[in-house]
Protein backbone atom coordinates (compact mmCIF):
# COMPACT_ATOMS: atom_id res chain seq x y z
CA UNK A 1 0.00 0.00 0.00
CA UNK A 2 1.33 3.41 -0.97
CA UNK A 3 2.08 6.05 1.63
CA UNK A 4 0.18 9.14 0.62
CA UNK A 5 -2.17 8.19 -2.17
CA UNK A 6 -4.93 5.85 -1.30
CA UNK A 7 -5.75 4.16 -4.62
CA UNK A 8 -8.95 2.43 -5.70
CA UNK A 9 -7.01 -0.81 -5.49
CA UNK A 10 -6.19 -0.07 -1.81
CA UNK A 11 -9.81 0.83 -1.18
CA UNK A 12 -10.97 -2.49 -2.62
CA UNK A 13 -8.46 -4.43 -0.52
CA UNK A 14 -9.53 -2.64 2.66
CA UNK A 15 -13.23 -3.13 2.06
CA UNK A 16 -12.78 -6.78 1.22
CA UNK A 17 -11.17 -7.12 4.64
CA UNK A 18 -14.00 -5.18 6.29
CA UNK A 19 -16.63 -7.29 4.57
CA UNK A 20 -14.94 -10.57 5.36
CA UNK A 21 -15.00 -9.64 9.05
CA UNK A 22 -18.73 -8.95 9.20
CA UNK A 23 -19.28 -11.58 11.87
CA UNK A 24 -17.12 -9.64 14.33
CA UNK A 25 -18.31 -6.79 16.51
CA UNK A 26 -15.14 -4.82 16.07
CA UNK A 27 -12.74 -4.18 13.20
CA UNK A 28 -9.37 -2.47 13.45
CA UNK A 29 -6.89 -2.00 10.67
CA UNK A 30 -3.56 -0.21 10.71
CA UNK A 31 -1.69 -0.40 7.46
CA UNK A 32 1.04 2.08 6.54
CA UNK A 33 -0.56 5.47 6.77
CA UNK A 34 -4.10 4.33 7.25
CA UNK A 35 -5.98 3.41 10.37
CA UNK A 36 -9.54 2.15 10.42
CA UNK A 37 -11.49 1.30 13.52
CA UNK A 38 -15.10 0.14 13.23
CA UNK A 39 -17.52 -0.99 15.91
CA UNK A 40 -20.84 -2.72 15.42
CA UNK A 41 -24.06 -1.34 16.93
CA UNK A 42 -25.16 -4.74 18.25
CA UNK A 43 -23.51 -8.13 18.49
CA UNK A 44 -25.92 -9.46 15.85
CA UNK A 45 -24.23 -10.39 12.60
CA UNK A 46 -24.76 -8.02 9.69
CA UNK A 47 -27.74 -8.88 7.52
CA UNK A 48 -26.62 -10.74 4.45
CA UNK A 49 -28.92 -12.50 2.10
CA UNK A 50 -31.88 -10.13 1.74
CA UNK A 51 -29.80 -7.32 0.31
CA UNK A 52 -31.12 -6.34 -3.12
CA UNK A 53 -28.44 -6.84 -5.77
CA UNK A 54 -28.26 -3.30 -7.10
CA UNK A 55 -28.81 -1.18 -3.96
CA UNK A 56 -26.27 1.56 -4.31
CA UNK A 57 -23.88 1.93 -1.45
CA UNK A 58 -25.65 -0.20 1.13
CA UNK A 59 -23.20 -2.99 0.72
CA UNK A 60 -23.49 -4.96 3.91
CA UNK A 61 -23.50 -8.44 2.50
CA UNK A 62 -20.19 -10.26 2.26
CA UNK A 63 -18.67 -10.52 -1.23
CA UNK A 64 -19.51 -14.20 -1.63
CA UNK A 65 -23.18 -13.22 -1.80
CA UNK A 66 -22.64 -11.46 -5.12
CA UNK A 67 -25.42 -12.19 -7.54
CA UNK A 68 -23.08 -11.14 -10.31
CA UNK A 69 -22.40 -14.50 -11.90
CA UNK A 70 -26.08 -14.90 -12.65
CA UNK A 71 -26.39 -11.48 -14.21
CA UNK A 72 -23.43 -11.76 -16.50
CA UNK A 73 -24.37 -14.44 -18.97
CA UNK A 74 -27.68 -13.22 -20.29
CA UNK A 75 -27.07 -9.56 -19.67
CA UNK A 76 -27.60 -8.30 -23.20
CA UNK A 77 -30.90 -9.98 -23.85
CA UNK A 78 -32.18 -9.27 -20.37
CA UNK A 79 -31.36 -5.63 -20.84
CA UNK A 80 -33.75 -5.44 -23.72
CA UNK A 81 -36.75 -7.24 -22.29
CA UNK A 82 -36.30 -8.08 -18.64
CA UNK A 83 -39.98 -7.74 -17.81
CA UNK A 84 -40.81 -10.50 -20.28
CA UNK A 85 -38.52 -12.92 -18.55
CA UNK A 86 -40.16 -12.06 -15.24
CA UNK A 87 -43.61 -12.72 -16.59
CA UNK A 88 -42.58 -16.08 -17.86
CA UNK A 89 -40.87 -17.06 -14.64
CA UNK A 90 -43.96 -16.15 -12.70
CA UNK A 91 -46.03 -18.52 -14.75
CA UNK A 92 -45.18 -22.17 -14.59
CA UNK A 93 -47.02 -25.18 -15.73
CA UNK A 94 -50.81 -24.82 -15.96
CA UNK A 95 -51.87 -27.20 -18.68
CA UNK A 96 -55.52 -27.11 -17.66
CA UNK A 97 -57.88 -24.45 -18.87
CA UNK A 98 -59.24 -22.51 -15.99
CA UNK A 99 -60.98 -19.36 -17.01
CA UNK A 100 -64.25 -18.80 -18.64
CA UNK A 101 -64.71 -15.22 -19.71
CA UNK A 102 -68.22 -16.07 -20.84
CA UNK A 103 -69.39 -16.39 -17.26
CA UNK A 104 -70.01 -20.13 -17.11
CA UNK A 105 -68.71 -22.05 -14.16
CA UNK A 106 -65.13 -23.19 -14.38
CA UNK A 107 -66.02 -26.81 -13.73
CA UNK A 108 -68.01 -26.99 -16.92
CA UNK A 109 -64.99 -26.43 -19.16
CA UNK A 110 -61.99 -28.31 -17.86
CA UNK A 111 -60.03 -29.56 -20.84
CA UNK A 112 -61.43 -33.10 -20.56
CA UNK A 113 -65.12 -32.47 -20.72
CA UNK A 114 -65.86 -30.23 -23.65
CA UNK A 115 -69.12 -31.16 -25.31
CA UNK A 116 -69.00 -33.62 -28.22
CA UNK A 117 -68.26 -32.25 -31.66
CA UNK A 118 -66.82 -28.89 -30.64
CA UNK A 119 -63.59 -27.49 -32.05
CA UNK A 120 -60.82 -26.42 -29.70
CA UNK A 121 -58.58 -23.55 -30.71
CA UNK A 122 -55.23 -24.29 -29.11
CA UNK A 123 -52.21 -22.10 -28.65
CA UNK A 124 -49.51 -22.99 -31.21
CA UNK A 125 -46.81 -21.75 -28.84
CA UNK A 126 -45.87 -20.52 -25.40
CA UNK A 127 -46.64 -16.85 -25.15
CA UNK A 128 -49.02 -14.17 -23.98
CA UNK A 129 -52.66 -14.16 -25.03
CA UNK A 130 -54.16 -10.90 -26.29
CA UNK A 131 -57.83 -10.72 -26.92
CA UNK A 132 -57.87 -7.37 -28.74
CA UNK A 133 -55.61 -5.76 -31.36
CA UNK A 134 -54.52 -2.89 -29.07
CA UNK A 135 -54.96 -2.23 -25.35
CA UNK A 136 -58.40 -0.73 -24.78
CA UNK A 137 -59.90 -1.65 -28.14
CA UNK A 138 -62.76 -4.08 -28.59
CA UNK A 139 -61.92 -7.80 -28.67
CA UNK A 140 -61.40 -9.75 -31.87
CA UNK A 141 -64.28 -12.08 -31.02
CA UNK A 142 -66.78 -12.52 -28.24
CA UNK A 143 -68.79 -15.43 -26.92
CA UNK A 144 -71.75 -16.26 -29.16
CA UNK A 145 -70.05 -14.72 -32.18
CA UNK A 146 -69.99 -16.66 -35.45
CA UNK A 147 -66.48 -17.03 -36.90
CA UNK A 148 -65.15 -18.28 -40.24
CA UNK A 149 -61.79 -20.05 -40.76
CA UNK A 150 -60.17 -16.72 -41.68
CA UNK A 151 -61.41 -14.80 -38.62
CA UNK A 152 -58.57 -13.65 -36.38
CA UNK A 153 -59.59 -14.67 -32.87
CA UNK A 154 -56.62 -13.49 -30.83
CA UNK A 155 -52.92 -12.63 -30.80
CA UNK A 156 -50.25 -14.72 -29.11
CA UNK A 157 -47.13 -12.74 -28.37
CA UNK A 158 -43.84 -14.60 -28.26
CA UNK A 159 -40.57 -12.74 -27.59
CA UNK A 160 -42.29 -9.50 -28.58
CA UNK A 161 -43.54 -10.93 -31.87
CA UNK A 162 -47.28 -10.86 -32.46
CA UNK A 163 -48.88 -13.93 -33.99
CA UNK A 164 -52.44 -13.53 -35.26
CA UNK A 165 -54.33 -16.73 -34.57
CA UNK A 166 -57.10 -17.62 -37.02
CA UNK A 167 -60.15 -19.67 -36.08
CA UNK A 168 -59.35 -22.30 -38.71
CA UNK A 169 -63.02 -23.47 -38.75
CA UNK A 170 -66.45 -21.95 -38.98
CA UNK A 171 -68.63 -22.01 -35.92
CA UNK A 172 -70.01 -20.23 -32.95
CA UNK A 173 -67.63 -19.19 -30.16
CA UNK A 174 -68.93 -20.87 -27.02
CA UNK A 175 -66.03 -20.29 -24.64
CA UNK A 176 -63.06 -17.97 -24.32
CA UNK A 177 -60.89 -19.67 -21.77
CA UNK A 178 -58.02 -17.24 -21.25
CA UNK A 179 -58.03 -13.67 -19.99
CA UNK A 180 -56.42 -10.85 -21.92
CA UNK A 181 -52.70 -10.55 -21.19
CA UNK A 182 -52.40 -14.00 -19.62
CA UNK A 183 -49.51 -16.34 -20.37
CA UNK A 184 -50.45 -19.48 -22.28
CA UNK A 185 -48.76 -22.83 -22.80
CA UNK A 186 -48.16 -24.73 -26.00
CA UNK A 187 -51.33 -26.66 -26.81
CA UNK A 188 -53.44 -24.86 -24.20
CA UNK A 189 -57.05 -24.50 -25.27
CA UNK A 190 -57.80 -20.83 -25.89
CA UNK A 191 -61.34 -20.96 -27.21
CA UNK A 192 -64.07 -23.42 -28.01
CA UNK A 193 -66.10 -23.26 -31.21
CA UNK A 194 -69.31 -25.13 -31.85
CA UNK A 195 -69.49 -25.72 -35.62
CA UNK A 196 -73.23 -26.37 -35.45
CA UNK A 197 -74.35 -24.05 -32.69
CA UNK A 198 -75.65 -20.53 -32.65
CA UNK A 199 -76.85 -18.28 -35.37
CA UNK A 200 -75.63 -19.97 -38.47
CA UNK A 201 -75.95 -17.90 -41.62
Amino acid sequence: MSDRNLSYEDLLQILKLVESSSQFAEFRLKLGDIEIDLRKASPLPAPCSQEPPSSSGKALSPPEMHPSAKEGSSAKAAGEHPQKADQRTAHAGYGETMFDAGGRSAGEVSSDNFPEGVILIKSPMVGTFYHSPEPGTSPFVEVDQWVTPETTVCIIEVMKLMNSIKAGHSGNVTHILVNDGEPVEFGQVLMVIDPNGGKKE
Partner: peptide, 25 residues
Protein backbone atom coordinates in the same frame (compact mmCIF):
# COMPACT_ATOMS: atom_id res chain seq x y z
CA UNK B 1 -14.61 11.63 -5.93
CA UNK B 2 -11.46 9.89 -4.75
CA UNK B 3 -10.72 6.56 -3.13
CA UNK B 4 -10.77 8.23 0.30
CA UNK B 5 -14.13 9.90 -0.37
CA UNK B 6 -15.51 6.57 -1.54
CA UNK B 7 -14.19 4.89 1.61
CA UNK B 8 -15.83 7.43 3.89
CA UNK B 9 -19.13 7.27 1.98
CA UNK B 10 -19.07 3.53 2.17
CA UNK B 11 -18.42 3.42 5.90
CA UNK B 12 -21.06 6.13 6.40
CA UNK B 13 -23.69 4.00 4.67
CA UNK B 14 -23.11 1.00 6.91
CA UNK B 15 -26.03 1.35 9.29
CA UNK B 16 -24.77 -1.51 11.46
CA UNK B 17 -21.84 0.48 12.85
CA UNK B 18 -21.99 2.38 16.12
CA UNK B 19 -18.60 3.98 15.73
CA UNK B 20 -16.17 4.48 12.87
CA UNK B 21 -12.74 6.00 13.04
CA UNK B 22 -10.58 6.62 9.98
CA UNK B 23 -7.14 8.14 10.00
CA UNK B 24 -5.28 8.73 6.79
CA UNK B 25 -2.49 11.09 5.70
Amino acid sequence: TSPLIELIRYIGKRSDLSRAHIKFA
